[in-house]
Design a protein around this nucleic acid. Structure first.
Lengths: 199, 199
DNA sequence: CATGCTCTCATCTATATGTTTGACAACATC
DNA sequence: GATGTTGTCAAACATATAGATGAGAGCATG
């Protein structure tokens, strides 16, 4: 949890220093992820981000160039993270579950993504590569009558819904979306859904 | 599209009147639905709502008691509308498709709902009635190994995703979420999904 | 220990935004 | 047609919020 300054010209930090830009950036990014994922861009308050991070709000302007800047920085991180999720060697069911666990462990990323989607901000318009899904379909991982694109989008929706609509979980399942009970139940159901789509 | 004043004490409107509170309310509600569903509560601007409606923004305070007031009014309308969608006599597949068309025809309601979900505003915590889904399962409309609650939530997610994540549609399908092509394609896929869940 | 750069903070400022105020016109009633 | 009420509007107001400013402390270097 402690910072390791990347700059070579700076001597190794003695565990506790007062001025630590790396640490400030990190704290601010974490705080911003909390704040933005909770309230969205328009609802987020720069002051609240600073309070969460325990630093002065001016640091946001200093390190990231303002509210917009730190928001975009979060977007870049999300893109990098999401890009690592295309593993053709692992079965589709496992891929979905892996993604689901990621979302359960930290819903902030997907919540942020949904918020972006609602506001119409779009990361990149590069078309999604469906060749992998088609390969899976040819290999029998997917029923022939289904559209690989549709399956992909449905799974995306199914994975994200507990994070983006927790109230719906409470209303329909009657349990907390964070609870281990629901996590297991939803994961199992998602597995079965995928299997049904293969048959 | 024209107003029919409900109050009996008011004489029938001569087609074009200057002072028409009913009409103002209607225009404002429509405009607010547009604005809020586009930008969410925090991002919406009272001035923009007034501009869309073509009236003075003070009327929002006059008729609805402010931004918060008109927002909640929209929420009440949504609840009433959604409550009408439980028709046990129609097959599940048809029910889903019916809901989907509703969303396609006017995505504002579901977008608003998703926005509420993200901000944690919750309409009512009354538990969803699952007896109908269980009946459908017993009647063979749903595979035995699936959790009715999970199916319900998944369908909800699948129906709303084109409205809430249009960019994902563009990215994955390469076509516009509004286009008839996508509407038909998604509806057909949703039908097949439901059928797969029945088998 | 002196110096210069980097980082941090408290305060100030400009602006945007929701709401309030007050004037006035349309309408119903008599 | 006079009058009181309701609906509408333009302008003023209060406040919240993001960003700017400048001072000063920490830190590396010599």
């Amino acid at each position: 949890m402690q910072g390791t300054p990347k700059r070579p010209r700076r001597a190794p930090t003695p565990e506790e220093r007062k001025l630590d830009p790396e640490r400030s950036r990190r704290l601010l990014l974490e705080a911003a992820r909390d704040e933005f994922s909770e309230k969205g861009f328009a609802g987020a308050r720069v002051q609240d981000i600073a309070d969460r991070a325990g630093v002065n709000k001016q640091l946001i302007a200093y390190h990231f160039g303002g509210k917009e800047g730190i928001y975009q920085e979060l977007g870049r991180e999300w893109l990098k993270r999401e890009a690592t999720f295309n593993d053709p060697s692992v079965p589709f069911e496992e891929l979905v579950v892996r993604y689901l666990r990621e979302v359960f462990d930290d819903p902030r990323g997907i919540r942020l993504a949904v918020w972006r989607a609602l506001t119409g901000e779009v990361a990149e318009e590069q078309p999604e590569d469906l060749s992998d899904m088609r390969r899976r379909q040819a290999a029998g991982e997917l029923a022939d009558d289904l559209d690989p694109a549709a399956v992909l989008l449905m799974c995306y929706a199914a994975v994200s819904v507990p994070a983006t609509m927790p109230h719906a979980v409470r209303q329909i399942f009657g349990i907390e979306p964070d609870s281990p009970e629901f996590r297991e139940r939803w994961e199992e159901q998602l597995r079965r859904l995928v299997r049904h789509l293969a048959a």
